[in-house]
Amino acid sequence: MDALLKKLSEARGVSGNEEAVRQVILEAVREHIDGYRVDALGNLICYKKARRQGGASWPRKVMLAAHMDEVGLMVTGFNNDGTLRFGKVGGIDDRVLLSKQVLIGPDAVPGVIGYRPIHLIPRAERNRPPDFSKLAIDIGASNQAGAEKLVKLGDYVSFRTSFEVLAEDGLRTVKGKAFDDRAGCAVLVELLKGEYAVDLYAAFTTQEEVGLRGAKVAAYAIAPDVAFAFEGTICDDLPSKKDVSPVTELGKGPAITFMDRSFVADRRLVDLLVRTAEKEGIPYQFKRAVAGGTDSGAIHLSREGVPAVTVSVPSRYIHAPVSMLSLLDLEHTVQLVQKSLHNMEGGLGS
Protein backbone atom coordinates (compact mmCIF):
# COMPACT_ATOMS: atom_id res chain seq x y z
CA MET A 1 0.00 0.00 0.00
CA ASP A 2 2.96 2.34 0.47
CA ALA A 3 3.56 2.31 -3.30
CA LEU A 4 0.03 3.58 -3.93
CA LEU A 5 0.28 6.17 -1.16
CA LYS A 6 3.60 7.38 -2.55
CA LYS A 7 2.05 7.94 -5.98
CA LEU A 8 -0.96 9.67 -4.48
CA SER A 9 1.09 11.84 -2.15
CA GLU A 10 3.52 12.99 -4.81
CA ALA A 11 0.79 13.75 -7.35
CA ARG A 12 0.05 17.48 -7.38
CA GLY A 13 -3.57 18.41 -6.87
CA VAL A 14 -4.31 21.72 -5.23
CA SER A 15 -8.07 22.46 -4.98
CA GLY A 16 -9.51 23.06 -8.45
CA ASN A 17 -6.67 21.28 -10.22
CA GLU A 18 -7.04 17.64 -9.25
CA GLU A 19 -6.40 16.10 -12.68
CA ALA A 20 -3.09 14.41 -11.82
CA VAL A 21 -4.52 12.76 -8.72
CA ARG A 22 -7.58 11.67 -10.66
CA GLN A 23 -5.34 9.89 -13.18
CA VAL A 24 -3.43 8.02 -10.47
CA ILE A 25 -6.69 6.89 -8.88
CA LEU A 26 -8.40 5.92 -12.11
CA GLU A 27 -5.46 3.78 -13.07
CA ALA A 28 -5.51 2.07 -9.67
CA VAL A 29 -9.25 1.36 -9.54
CA ARG A 30 -10.19 0.81 -13.17
CA GLU A 31 -10.12 -2.99 -13.04
CA HIS A 32 -12.16 -3.14 -9.84
CA ILE A 33 -15.17 -1.02 -10.82
CA ASP A 34 -18.04 -1.21 -13.28
CA GLY A 35 -18.02 2.37 -14.51
CA TYR A 36 -17.00 5.91 -13.75
CA ARG A 37 -17.71 9.48 -14.64
CA VAL A 38 -16.07 12.83 -14.15
CA ASP A 39 -18.54 15.59 -13.38
CA ALA A 40 -18.59 19.35 -13.85
CA LEU A 41 -16.47 19.98 -10.75
CA GLY A 42 -13.97 17.27 -11.63
CA ASN A 43 -15.19 14.70 -9.13
CA LEU A 44 -14.30 11.15 -10.12
CA ILE A 45 -17.33 9.01 -9.31
CA CYS A 46 -16.82 5.25 -9.54
CA TYR A 47 -19.64 2.78 -9.56
CA LYS A 48 -19.38 -0.79 -8.34
CA LYS A 49 -22.46 -3.00 -8.33
CA ALA A 50 -23.06 -5.43 -5.51
CA ARG A 51 -21.04 -8.59 -6.10
CA ARG A 52 -22.96 -10.76 -3.69
CA GLN A 53 -26.61 -11.51 -2.97
CA GLY A 54 -28.26 -11.09 0.34
CA GLY A 55 -27.83 -7.38 0.99
CA ALA A 56 -30.65 -5.52 2.69
CA SER A 57 -32.86 -3.29 0.56
CA TRP A 58 -31.75 -0.34 2.71
CA PRO A 59 -29.10 0.87 2.91
CA ARG A 60 -28.37 -0.28 -0.60
CA LYS A 61 -26.72 2.69 -2.23
CA VAL A 62 -23.58 3.48 -0.29
CA MET A 63 -21.50 6.56 -1.01
CA LEU A 64 -17.83 6.44 -0.07
CA ALA A 65 -15.97 9.73 -0.35
CA ALA A 66 -12.38 10.91 -0.12
CA HIS A 67 -11.14 14.21 -1.43
CA MET A 68 -8.39 14.43 -4.00
CA ASP A 69 -7.45 18.05 -3.44
CA GLU A 70 -4.78 19.43 -1.14
CA VAL A 71 -4.10 22.89 0.23
CA GLY A 72 -1.57 24.93 -1.71
CA LEU A 73 -0.87 28.27 -3.30
CA MET A 74 -1.69 30.09 -6.50
CA VAL A 75 0.32 32.61 -8.50
CA THR A 76 -1.48 35.95 -8.36
CA GLY A 77 1.12 38.32 -9.80
CA PHE A 78 4.68 39.14 -10.80
CA ASN A 79 7.12 41.44 -9.07
CA ASN A 80 9.61 43.50 -11.07
CA ASP A 81 12.48 41.52 -9.62
CA GLY A 82 11.21 38.29 -11.18
CA THR A 83 9.67 36.86 -7.99
CA LEU A 84 6.05 35.73 -7.83
CA ARG A 85 3.20 36.92 -5.66
CA PHE A 86 0.86 34.25 -4.45
CA GLY A 87 -2.38 33.59 -2.61
CA LYS A 88 -3.38 30.65 -0.44
CA VAL A 89 -5.72 27.94 -1.64
CA GLY A 90 -7.32 26.48 1.48
CA GLY A 91 -6.20 26.95 5.06
CA ILE A 92 -2.43 27.19 5.54
CA ASP A 93 -0.67 28.55 8.58
CA ASP A 94 1.51 31.45 7.32
CA ARG A 95 4.27 30.43 9.69
CA VAL A 96 4.96 27.16 7.87
CA LEU A 97 5.51 28.86 4.51
CA LEU A 98 8.94 30.32 5.24
CA SER A 99 11.92 28.66 3.56
CA LYS A 100 10.03 25.98 1.66
CA GLN A 101 10.42 24.51 -1.80
CA VAL A 102 7.49 24.56 -4.17
CA LEU A 103 6.53 23.38 -7.65
CA ILE A 104 4.60 25.70 -9.94
CA GLY A 105 2.16 25.10 -12.78
CA PRO A 106 1.74 22.19 -15.17
CA ASP A 107 5.47 22.07 -15.89
CA ALA A 108 6.37 21.83 -12.20
CA VAL A 109 8.72 24.82 -12.27
CA PRO A 110 10.74 24.71 -9.02
CA GLY A 111 10.82 27.67 -6.68
CA VAL A 112 11.52 28.64 -3.08
CA ILE A 113 9.80 30.88 -0.56
CA GLY A 114 12.56 32.87 1.10
CA TYR A 115 12.57 35.35 3.94
CA ARG A 116 14.76 38.18 5.17
CA PRO A 117 17.99 36.95 6.81
CA ILE A 118 17.66 36.88 10.56
CA HIS A 119 20.65 39.29 10.78
CA LEU A 120 18.59 42.04 9.20
CA ILE A 121 15.46 41.58 11.29
CA PRO A 122 15.22 43.88 14.31
CA ARG A 123 15.02 41.94 17.56
CA ALA A 124 11.47 43.07 18.36
CA GLU A 125 10.19 41.88 15.00
CA ARG A 126 11.59 38.37 15.42
CA ASN A 127 8.86 37.52 17.88
CA ARG A 128 6.12 38.31 15.42
CA PRO A 129 4.74 36.02 12.73
CA PRO A 130 5.91 36.89 9.21
CA ASP A 131 4.02 39.46 7.19
CA PHE A 132 2.27 37.35 4.56
CA SER A 133 2.13 40.25 2.10
CA LYS A 134 5.95 40.39 2.06
CA LEU A 135 6.41 36.76 1.02
CA ALA A 136 7.22 35.84 -2.56
CA ILE A 137 8.24 32.79 -4.57
CA ASP A 138 11.68 32.94 -6.15
CA ILE A 139 12.08 30.87 -9.32
CA GLY A 140 15.47 32.32 -10.22
CA ALA A 141 14.13 34.64 -12.91
CA SER A 142 15.89 38.01 -12.93
CA ASN A 143 12.93 40.07 -14.02
CA GLN A 144 9.21 39.92 -14.75
CA ALA A 145 9.68 38.97 -18.41
CA GLY A 146 11.87 36.07 -17.43
CA ALA A 147 9.33 34.84 -14.91
CA GLU A 148 6.48 35.15 -17.40
CA LYS A 149 8.27 32.75 -19.73
CA LEU A 150 8.10 30.00 -17.11
CA VAL A 151 4.96 30.67 -15.12
CA LYS A 152 1.45 31.88 -15.88
CA LEU A 153 -0.93 33.89 -13.74
CA GLY A 154 -3.22 31.54 -11.89
CA ASP A 155 -0.80 28.62 -11.95
CA TYR A 156 -1.27 26.30 -9.00
CA VAL A 157 1.61 25.87 -6.58
CA SER A 158 2.19 22.81 -4.44
CA PHE A 159 4.84 21.97 -1.89
CA ARG A 160 7.79 19.99 -3.16
CA THR A 161 7.93 17.09 -0.75
CA SER A 162 8.97 13.54 -1.43
CA PHE A 163 7.34 10.52 0.09
CA GLU A 164 9.48 8.34 2.30
CA VAL A 165 9.10 5.34 4.54
CA LEU A 166 10.54 6.22 7.95
CA ALA A 167 10.04 3.00 9.88
CA GLU A 168 9.84 -0.41 8.20
CA ASP A 169 8.40 -2.10 11.29
CA GLY A 170 6.13 -1.26 14.17
CA LEU A 171 3.89 1.67 13.31
CA ARG A 172 5.50 1.80 9.86
CA THR A 173 5.50 5.57 9.75
CA VAL A 174 5.80 7.39 6.46
CA LYS A 175 6.18 11.06 5.61
CA GLY A 176 4.97 13.00 2.61
CA LYS A 177 2.73 15.83 1.58
CA ALA A 178 -1.04 15.98 1.30
CA PHE A 179 -1.95 13.01 3.51
CA ASP A 180 -5.03 15.17 4.01
CA ASP A 181 -6.58 13.57 2.08
CA ARG A 182 -4.51 11.22 -0.05
CA ALA A 183 -4.63 8.90 2.96
CA GLY A 184 -8.39 8.83 2.52
CA CYS A 185 -7.98 8.29 -1.23
CA ALA A 186 -5.66 5.34 -0.55
CA VAL A 187 -8.22 3.85 1.85
CA LEU A 188 -10.97 4.23 -0.70
CA VAL A 189 -8.93 2.71 -3.53
CA GLU A 190 -8.25 -0.33 -1.35
CA LEU A 191 -11.91 -0.63 -0.38
CA LEU A 192 -12.92 -0.78 -4.04
CA LYS A 193 -10.92 -3.98 -4.42
CA GLY A 194 -13.28 -5.82 -2.08
CA GLU A 195 -16.62 -7.46 -2.84
CA TYR A 196 -19.80 -6.30 -1.16
CA ALA A 197 -23.51 -6.97 -1.10
CA VAL A 198 -24.32 -3.27 -1.52
CA ASP A 199 -23.91 -0.93 -4.48
CA LEU A 200 -20.91 1.30 -3.99
CA TYR A 201 -20.55 4.82 -5.34
CA ALA A 202 -17.02 5.95 -4.64
CA ALA A 203 -16.60 9.68 -5.00
CA PHE A 204 -13.07 11.00 -5.21
CA THR A 205 -14.03 14.59 -4.65
CA THR A 206 -12.58 17.97 -5.51
CA GLN A 207 -12.39 21.32 -3.73
CA GLU A 208 -12.94 20.02 -0.21
CA GLU A 209 -10.36 22.46 1.14
CA VAL A 210 -12.20 25.48 -0.24
CA GLY A 211 -15.60 24.54 1.17
CA LEU A 212 -16.65 20.90 0.61
CA ARG A 213 -17.73 21.86 -2.90
CA GLY A 214 -17.11 18.71 -4.88
CA ALA A 215 -18.88 16.51 -2.34
CA LYS A 216 -21.95 18.72 -2.45
CA VAL A 217 -22.66 18.11 -6.12
CA ALA A 218 -21.46 14.49 -6.05
CA ALA A 219 -23.88 13.64 -3.24
CA TYR A 220 -26.72 15.37 -5.08
CA ALA A 221 -26.00 13.30 -8.19
CA ILE A 222 -25.60 10.00 -6.34
CA ALA A 223 -28.49 10.44 -3.89
CA PRO A 224 -27.07 7.77 -1.56
CA ASP A 225 -28.80 5.93 1.29
CA VAL A 226 -25.79 6.32 3.60
CA ALA A 227 -22.31 7.77 3.28
CA PHE A 228 -18.81 7.26 4.66
CA ALA A 229 -16.10 9.87 4.19
CA PHE A 230 -12.42 9.09 4.65
CA GLU A 231 -9.90 11.62 5.84
CA GLY A 232 -6.40 12.21 6.97
CA THR A 233 -7.23 14.07 10.13
CA ILE A 234 -5.62 16.21 12.81
CA CYS A 235 -3.21 14.34 15.08
CA ASP A 236 -1.76 16.46 17.87
CA ASP A 237 -0.03 13.87 20.04
CA LEU A 238 3.14 15.89 20.50
CA PRO A 239 4.40 16.45 24.04
CA SER A 240 2.06 18.86 25.78
CA LYS A 241 2.24 20.62 29.11
CA LYS A 242 -1.42 20.01 29.76
CA ASP A 243 -3.39 16.79 29.99
CA VAL A 244 -5.74 17.71 27.15
CA SER A 245 -7.08 16.05 24.04
CA PRO A 246 -4.52 15.18 21.34
CA VAL A 247 -7.51 14.97 18.92
CA THR A 248 -6.07 11.68 17.66
CA GLU A 249 -2.92 9.67 18.33
CA LEU A 250 -0.66 8.02 15.82
CA GLY A 251 -0.79 4.25 15.82
CA LYS A 252 -3.98 3.95 17.86
CA GLY A 253 -6.11 2.99 14.87
CA PRO A 254 -8.72 4.65 12.68
CA ALA A 255 -10.41 7.71 14.19
CA ILE A 256 -14.20 7.76 14.14
CA THR A 257 -15.82 11.19 14.14
CA PHE A 258 -18.86 11.72 16.36
CA MET A 259 -19.06 15.42 15.58
CA ASP A 260 -16.96 18.07 13.90
CA ARG A 261 -17.61 21.61 12.76
CA SER A 262 -19.44 20.41 9.67
CA PHE A 263 -21.76 17.66 10.92
CA VAL A 264 -22.94 15.32 13.65
CA ALA A 265 -22.24 11.73 12.69
CA ASP A 266 -25.16 9.35 12.37
CA ARG A 267 -25.30 7.41 15.63
CA ARG A 268 -26.13 4.11 13.89
CA LEU A 269 -23.06 4.35 11.66
CA VAL A 270 -20.83 5.23 14.62
CA ASP A 271 -22.22 2.23 16.51
CA LEU A 272 -21.69 -0.02 13.49
CA LEU A 273 -18.02 0.97 13.30
CA VAL A 274 -17.43 0.62 17.05
CA ARG A 275 -19.22 -2.73 17.20
CA THR A 276 -17.25 -4.02 14.24
CA ALA A 277 -13.92 -2.84 15.64
CA GLU A 278 -14.62 -4.51 18.97
CA LYS A 279 -15.83 -7.73 17.40
CA GLU A 280 -12.91 -7.99 14.98
CA GLY A 281 -10.27 -6.77 17.42
CA ILE A 282 -9.33 -3.81 15.23
CA PRO A 283 -7.96 -0.84 17.20
CA TYR A 284 -9.94 2.37 16.89
CA GLN A 285 -10.20 5.76 18.51
CA PHE A 286 -12.56 8.69 18.38
CA LYS A 287 -11.60 11.99 16.88
CA ARG A 288 -11.60 13.88 20.18
CA ALA A 289 -12.33 17.46 19.20
CA VAL A 290 -15.08 19.43 17.52
CA ALA A 291 -12.63 20.70 14.93
CA GLY A 292 -12.30 20.69 11.17
CA GLY A 293 -14.91 19.88 8.58
CA THR A 294 -15.13 17.01 6.11
CA ASP A 295 -17.06 16.01 3.01
CA SER A 296 -19.66 14.44 5.33
CA GLY A 297 -20.69 17.99 6.16
CA ALA A 298 -21.88 18.55 2.61
CA ILE A 299 -23.12 15.03 1.99
CA HIS A 300 -25.39 14.74 5.04
CA LEU A 301 -27.28 17.87 4.00
CA SER A 302 -27.91 16.63 0.47
CA ARG A 303 -31.50 16.36 -0.72
CA GLU A 304 -33.63 15.00 2.17
CA GLY A 305 -30.60 14.21 4.33
CA VAL A 306 -28.10 11.35 4.32
CA PRO A 307 -26.85 9.44 7.39
CA ALA A 308 -23.09 9.93 7.30
CA VAL A 309 -19.92 9.24 9.23
CA THR A 310 -16.26 10.10 8.79
CA VAL A 311 -13.39 7.69 9.45
CA SER A 312 -9.89 9.10 9.46
CA VAL A 313 -6.29 8.09 9.40
CA PRO A 314 -4.49 10.17 12.07
CA SER A 315 -1.97 12.40 10.28
CA ARG A 316 0.48 14.66 12.07
CA TYR A 317 1.21 18.11 10.60
CA ILE A 318 -1.64 18.36 8.11
CA HIS A 319 -2.02 21.59 6.09
CA ALA A 320 1.76 21.93 6.16
CA PRO A 321 4.41 20.93 3.61
CA VAL A 322 5.09 17.55 5.16
CA SER A 323 2.85 15.26 7.15
CA MET A 324 3.31 11.90 8.83
CA LEU A 325 1.11 8.85 9.30
CA SER A 326 1.30 5.19 10.26
CA LEU A 327 0.66 2.64 7.53
CA LEU A 328 -0.68 0.41 10.26
CA ASP A 329 -3.44 2.94 10.95
CA LEU A 330 -4.13 3.12 7.23
CA GLU A 331 -4.50 -0.64 6.95
CA HIS A 332 -6.66 -0.81 10.05
CA THR A 333 -8.90 1.84 8.55
CA VAL A 334 -9.39 -0.24 5.41
CA GLN A 335 -10.11 -3.37 7.47
CA LEU A 336 -12.52 -1.60 9.77
CA VAL A 337 -14.59 -0.12 6.97
CA GLN A 338 -14.51 -3.27 4.90
CA LYS A 339 -15.80 -5.37 7.79
CA SER A 340 -18.31 -2.71 8.72
CA LEU A 341 -19.72 -2.69 5.19
CA HIS A 342 -20.12 -6.46 5.48
CA ASN A 343 -21.79 -6.09 8.88
CA MET A 344 -24.16 -3.54 7.37
CA GLU A 345 -25.47 -6.06 4.85
CA GLY A 346 -28.35 -7.05 7.08
CA GLY A 347 -29.40 -3.43 7.51
CA LEU A 348 -28.50 -0.64 9.86
CA GLY A 349 -30.89 -1.14 12.73
CA SER A 350 -32.21 1.82 14.64
Partner: peptide, 17 residues
Protein backbone atom coordinates in the same frame (compact mmCIF):
# COMPACT_ATOMS: atom_id res chain seq x y z
CA UNK B 1 -21.30 20.60 25.31
CA UNK B 2 -19.59 17.44 24.08
CA UNK B 3 -16.85 15.57 25.92
CA UNK B 4 -13.61 15.38 23.94
CA UNK B 5 -11.12 14.15 26.55
CA UNK B 6 -11.03 12.72 30.07
CA UNK B 7 -7.76 13.38 31.85
CA UNK B 8 -5.92 11.13 34.29
CA UNK B 9 -7.76 12.61 37.28
CA UNK B 10 -11.17 12.17 35.71
CA UNK B 11 -11.81 15.75 34.62
CA UNK B 12 -13.51 16.06 31.25
CA UNK B 13 -12.56 18.55 28.57
CA UNK B 14 -15.24 19.48 26.13
CA UNK B 15 -16.19 21.11 22.85
CA UNK B 16 -19.14 23.37 22.18
CA UNK B 17 -22.40 22.24 20.60
Amino acid sequence: VVVTHIDKKGFARFGRV
